[in-house]
């Protein structure tokens, strides 16, 4: 087992990234709490970041990590605004259940 683990390759990191991404996707589709839904999207960002850094290391090019910085930036901005909106929505319906917003008409 130690030998198996002694040759960590790009594939390992990609598997981890894929698994994290899929778990994030499943969480997004499954949870009803709006905040947790957004948290799962953050998880998906995370997975993408891992993949990108792995590739950057694999090809010895720093641009991948630079891009991860930008991902971080965008994630932060998006989180801020999303949370603000969630709070507004919570005030309207007094619940965080995403199914409260399922009427297909203006409310």
């Amino acid at each position: 087992m130690i030998e198996a683990l002694s040759h960590i390759s790009l594939t390992h990191y990609l598997i981890v990234s894929a698994a994290l991404f899929v778990i994030g996707l499943v969480g997004f589709l499954v949870r009803r709490n709006m905040i947790i839904m957004f948290l799962c999207t953050e998880l998906m960002f995370q997975a993408a970041a891992i993949a990108m850094v792995a590739f950057s290391r694999f090809s010895l090019d720093v641009s991948g990590q630079v891009f991860v910085i930008f991902i971080l930036t965008v994630a932060a901005a998006e989180a801020a605004l999303a949370l603000g909106l969630i709070v507004l929505l919570y005030r309207r319906r007094e619940t965080l259940n995403s199914e409260a917003w399922s009427e297909m008409r203006e409310s």
């Binding site: 997004f28 589709l29 839904m37 995403s98 199914e99 917003w101 399922s102 009427e103 297909m104």
Partner: peptide, 14 residues
């Protein structure tokens, strides 16, 4: 299929 719930649409898309 059309129930207004975002997540079900997301499931279909995924």
């Amino acid at each position: 299929l059309q129930n207004g719930i975002v997540q079900s649409y997301a499931v279909s898309m995924a």
